[in-house]
Write a protein that binds this DNA or RNA. Structure first.
Lengths: 135, 135
DNA sequence: TCCTAGTTTAGAATTAGTCTAAATCCATAG
DNA sequence: CTATGGATTTAGACTAATTCTAAACTAGGA
C-alpha cells in the first residue's frame, strides 16, 4: 500500500496508472512520456498514449512522481519527489540528479529579490558530463 | 555600432536580424518567438516565421540575446545576456529576472556533486508573483 | 441488475519549432 | 557597369510533443 499512501480516498490507482508508476519507479534514469508508453505497453498492450499522459498528470498531482521540463524536447519523469537539483550535459543532453542543500537555503533570498511568495527553488548546472569529457 | 560590437567580421546583422533584435531590446518582458514575429512584422511586413527563428539562433550564437526555456510552452527571449536567475509564477506564469550572486558561487559545489565540468548555473524560484498574491 | 461517474481508447487537433527548395540579396571580380 | 556565387529570406510542408474529443468501457452503489 506504500504506493497509495499519498492518495486521497477518492483517488484511484487504476491498472493503467499503476503500470505507469511502476515503469518510472523501476528506472534509474528519467524517461520521457514516449519511453514510458513503450515500456507500459509490454505489461498492458492496449494502453494508449493519451492514458499515459492522463496517468502522468494524475501521478504528478498525487505527488508520486516529479516532472522535469527543460524545453529541450520532451518532459522527463522522475521517481524522486523530494527537492533536488539537476545537471544537464551540453553535449549529449544527459540529465543527472543531485542535491545541493545550500540551494534550498537561497529560497528566502530569492524571494526577497523577486518579491515572489516562494514555493520551491531549484538549481540547474549546465556543463559537460564525465563521459563526454573523455570523448 | 554597439549592437554589432560582439559580431565577428564575417557575421552580418541583416535588416531582418536587426528588426528581431530591436523588438527584444525594446521590451521589458520576455517575448516568445511568435510575439517577436508579430512585432517584427509591423516594421518588416514580409518577414517570415522561419526568418524569426533563424535570426533568433543567429543572435543567440552571437551572444546578443538569451533564450529561456522552461518547457511551459514556447521559449522566451531575453535582452539580458549576463548570468541571472528567474522566478516563475505558479498561477499566471509570469517570468521575472533577478540576480542572486550567491547562486553563481554554488557552481563549484554543484560540479563536485554531479561530476560535471561546469559551464553555468542558474537558479529558478517557483512561487506566486505579487499581483497574484493580492488576487 | 441497472445507472452513473470516472476512465480509457484511438485518432484528430494543436502548438512550437525545423526543414526544404526556390527566390532574392548583395559584395565582389571582371 | 554587369555577372556571379554564397549567404539569406521566404512560404509552406513537415515533425514531435502534447492535448482534446467523443465513443466505448468499467466499477461501485442503489
Amino acid at each position: 500500500m506504500a504506493a497509495t499512501a499519498n492518495l486521497k480516498t477518492e483517488e484511484k490507482l487504476t491498472r493503467q496508472r499503476d503500470a505507469v508508476l511502476q515503469v518510472i519507479r523501476s528506472r534509474e534514469d528519467h524517461p520521457t512520456a514516449n519511453e514510458i508508453f513503450q515500456a507500459a505497453r509490454l505489461q498492458l498492450p492496449t494502453i494508449s498514449y493519451a492514458t499515459v499522459y492522463n496517468s502522468l498528470r494524475f501521478l504528478k498531482e498525487a505527488g508520486l512522481v516529479h516532472e522535469i521540463k527543460f524545453g529541450d524536447g520532451a518532459s522527463r519523469y522522475d521517481r524522486e519527489t523530494d527537492r533536488h537539483d539537476h545537471a544537464i550535459c551540453n553535449d549529449c543532453g544527459k540529465l543527472v540528479d543531485f542535491d545541493l542543500p545550500q540551494a534550498a537555503n537561497l529560497m528566502q533570498a530569492a524571494a526577497r529579490k523577486s518579491k515572489f511568495q516562494p514555493a520551491s527553488v531549484h538549481l540547474t548546472l549546465r556543463g559537460v558530463c564525465p563521459e563526454c569529457r573523455k570523448a
